[in-house]
Structure formats: C-alpha cells, structure tokens
Amino acid sequence: MPHYRSRDFTASRAWGALDIAQLNGISVRLHWTDQPYHWHVNEGEEVFAVLDGVVCMHYREEGEVRQLMLQTGDIFHAGVGCEHVAHPQGEARILVIEQAGSE
C-alpha cells in the first residue's frame, strides 16, 4: 500500500501536486506551494486541508472579500460557486479533494 509523508513532499514549482487517488470522479491530491494561487471557482465542491504550514484563505461571500487564517490541521470547504484564493504564509502542504479536472 502506498504511504505518503506530507511534510517531506516538495514540488519543482508552486502548486505542484502528487496525485494520491481518483475516487469515482473525485481527485485527492497533495500540493506543495510557497506562492499564492489565483482567484477561481471550482466546478464542484472542494475540501482544502492544511497538512503543514499556514494558509490565508481569501474568499468572496455576499460580494465581500473575507479572509480566514488556516493553521496546520484546519480544513476549508469551498461550496459550489465559492470564489476563493489561497495565500500560503511561507511553505505549505495542502490536501485538496475536488472533482477531477477542477483547477
């Protein structure tokens, strides 16, 4: 059985990913980054779990930009239509569970 030690994972570029599993059209990926992503809306829901580091999640709610500081162990759920962008505070490792093919 595969085993992953998230704190040891790095990628050659920001938001580089290690594919963990495909579950009936849902992808589970481990991302490494030290740079912000970009504002986006996923095609479906997304679960974003910080495994290592700190991430400031910016999201729009009722037309207003809000921020939530996510610590190691915190989980963010982006519902359908939730526009959001992650800003790591230094290096971070994040487990992302989303519809396969989402950005």
Results as ranks from 00 to 15, higher is better:
residue 72 T to N: 02
residue 48 F to E: 04
residue 56 C to F: 15
residue 35 Q to C: 00
residue 78 A to V: 03
residue 32 W to P: 01
residue 24 N to F: 09
residue 67 Q to H: 09
residue 16 G to Q: 10
residue 18 L to F: 10
residue 71 Q to H: 13
residue 7 R to D: 12
residue 17 A to Y: 14
residue 13 R to K: 13
residue 32 W to Q: 05
residue 38 H to T: 15
residue 19 D to E: 11
residue 86 A to N: 04
residue 70 L to H: 06
residue 24 N to V: 03
residue 80 V to S: 13
residue 9 F to M: 04
residue 13 R to Y: 10
residue 52 D to F: 04
residue 26 I to L: 07
residue 48 F to G: 07
residue 99 Q to R: 09
residue 31 H to K: 09
residue 71 Q to T: 05
residue 45 E to W: 12
residue 54 V to Q: 10
residue 83 E to H: 01
residue 43 E to R: 12
residue 14 A to D: 14
residue 68 L to N: 05
residue 66 R to M: 06
residue 76 F to W: 13
residue 22 Q to F: 09
residue 59 Y to K: 00
residue 81 G to K: 02
residue 59 Y to I: 00
residue 72 T to Q: 10
residue 97 I to T: 12
residue 39 W to D: 12
residue 42 N to S: 15
residue 101 G to E: 03
residue 42 N to C: 15
residue 15 W to S: 11
residue 17 A to W: 06
residue 54 V to W: 09
residue 74 D to M: 05
residue 9 F to T: 00
residue 26 I to A: 08
residue 66 R to A: 06
residue 31 H to L: 15
residue 20 I to R: 06
residue 48 F to V: 08
residue 76 F to P: 08
residue 6 S to F: 10
residue 74 D to A: 10
residue 55 V to W: 09
residue 13 R to P: 04
residue 42 N to H: 15
residue 72 T to M: 03
residue 42 N to G: 14
residue 97 I to K: 00
residue 98 E to Q: 13
residue 97 I to P: 00
residue 40 H to W: 07
residue 3 H to M: 15
residue 95 L to A: 06
residue 66 R to K: 15
residue 41 V to D: 06
residue 69 M to W: 07
residue 39 W to A: 08
residue 97 I to R: 00
residue 42 N to K: 03
residue 21 A to I: 03
residue 11 A to Y: 04
residue 33 T to C: 03
residue 4 Y to G: 08
residue 71 Q to G: 10
residue 82 C to E: 11
residue 45 E to P: 09
residue 59 Y to C: 00
residue 92 A to Q: 02
residue 89 Q to G: 02
residue 6 S to M: 02
residue 92 A to L: 08
residue 102 S to D: 12
residue 29 R to I: 15
residue 92 A to C: 01
residue 50 V to L: 01
residue 88 P to G: 03
residue 10 T to N: 07
residue 18 L to N: 07
residue 48 F to P: 11
residue 73 G to Q: 01
residue 8 D to C: 07
residue 47 V to Q: 11
residue 40 H to N: 09
residue 34 D to P: 00
residue 49 A to Y: 14
residue 80 V to H: 14
residue 51 L to I: 02
residue 6 S to Q: 02
residue 38 H to A: 15
residue 37 Y to L: 15
residue 56 C to S: 13
residue 62 E to D: 14
residue 79 G to E: 10
residue 77 H to P: 11
residue 61 E to F: 01
residue 36 P to A: 05
residue 64 E to P: 05
residue 31 H to Q: 12
residue 30 L to E: 13
residue 5 R to P: 11
residue 36 P to S: 12
residue 23 L to Y: 05
residue 92 A to N: 01
residue 100 A to G: 03
residue 36 P to T: 02
residue 48 F to I: 08
residue 36 P to H: 07
residue 54 V to K: 09
residue 25 G to V: 05
residue 30 L to N: 10
residue 87 H to A: 09
residue 9 F to H: 06
residue 80 V to N: 11
residue 85 V to H: 12
residue 64 E to S: 07
residue 101 G to W: 01
residue 7 R to G: 11
residue 15 W to G: 08
residue 17 A to V: 12
residue 21 A to K: 13
residue 59 Y to E: 02
residue 1 M to I: 12
residue 10 T to V: 02
residue 1 M to E: 07
residue 7 R to E: 15
residue 64 E to T: 12
